[in-house]
Design a protein around this nucleic acid. Structure first.
Length: 313
DNA sequence: AATCGAATAT
DNA sequence: CATATTCGAT
């Protein structure tokens, strides 16, 4: 089972990680090798995205189902005297599931170096299929009634949230759609796309949330999320300009990485400035008023952290 | 009505 | 600090 379980099934690709690595290692051409890797990484990221969507929605869905069942049971008890079973029909519950199973969300955590240990799933990658990616019959729920619900990475599919929602039973609770949205984190991958899109649009100062979202093409991603992220991004950008006496702050991915991504996987042409830049020169490389200047690593740009050797060829 | 950006709130 | 939500302006 060992090797076979390590399969990656994306698009038309189905191989084990070792096969992929082997294949890539045989390529001499640098850019080809790079492209190939990009391709696989991208494919895998998409897989993660899909999987995560389910992972994320599952607790909520379970919660809702449990709640619904409870209600129906109670309702049923009132009519119990008759011949009917108070229990919900178990044959059809799945049919309704299809309604709200519309994939949403992203939030993949993906590390190329750990592929072998991470990937086990096989699935098929559909292009941007559904056109109904907006409707949630049931909108994401927050905590049912009690304190924090499992949410953080690590997919705490906590029986916690479940048992609490029923046993703790705050049934009278409304199913208002007004629930707060769950806090979702921007995975490095997502951020990468974000920055990439940003550049394609001409920079953080001119790109608009909607455009970015569309360019990113990540399903489940909302304008608001992008907007919020953009706001943060813009703020961080304006930091640590010249007087960077302290390097103990800021981060984000390096723009070099993003450029590479933009150039390779996304758009062959690249709406960027080509050879002749009409403008004279201005200080070092970038302007003070215009574009990017990012710093080091990503992910928890808290105080200081080392730089986990990233290799890009 | 849709969205943007800034200000707040969590 | 990061993300979500609200608010005012277009």
């Amino acid at each position: 089972m060992g090797d076979d379980s390590n399969k990656v099934c994306s698009d038309s690709v189905t191989k084990t990680i070792s096969e992929i690595l082997k294949e890539v290692s045989l390529i001499d051409d640098f850019s080809k090798k790079s492209s190939k890797l990009e391709f696989y990484v991208h494919a895998l990221e998409l897989e993660m995205t899909k999987i995560d969507a389910f992972k994320r929605e599952l607790p909520h869905s379970m919660s809702l189902l449990k709640d619904a069942i409870e209600r129906l049971k109670e309702e049923g008890l009132q009519w119990k005297g008759k011949d009917l079973e108070p229990v919900i029909d178990k044959k059809n519950w799945m049919s309704s599931a299809q309604l709200w199973s519309t994939p949403v969300h992203y939030g993949n955590y993906f590390d190329i170096r750990n592929q072998d240990s991470i990937l086990h799933q096989k699935r098929t990658y559909n292009k941007e299929e559904n056109g109904n990616g907006k409707e949630h019959i049931f909108v994401p729920f927050q905590k049912p009634c009690n304190g924090t619900v499992g949410e953080e990475k690590g997919m705490t599919i906590s029986a916690h949230s479940l048992s609490l929602s029923i046993s703790g039973n705050c049934r009278a609770q409304q199913q208002h759609q007004l629930q707060k949205k769950q806090r979702r984190c921007w995975s490095p991958e997502l951020h990468k796309r974000f920055v990439s899109a940003l550049h394609q649009l001409g920079g953080a100062q001119v790109a608009t949330p909607k455009q970015i979202r569309e360019l990113m093409n990540v399903d489940g991603l909302t304008n608001d999320e992008v907007k919020s992220h953009l706001q943060k991004y813009r703020l961080h950008i304006r930091k640590i300009p010249t007087s960077s006496t302290d390097l103990s702050s800021c981060s984000w991915l390096t723009q070099d990485q993003c450029k590479a991504i933009v150039a390779q996987s996304c758009s062959p042409q690249g709406p960027l400035h080509l050879g002749g830049s009409p403008k004279g020169l201005s200080a070092t490389g970038r302007d003070s008023m215009e574009e990017e200047d990012d710093k080091s690593e990503s992910h928890s740009w808290k105080g200081l952290l080392h730089k986990p050797v990233e290799e890009q060829q």
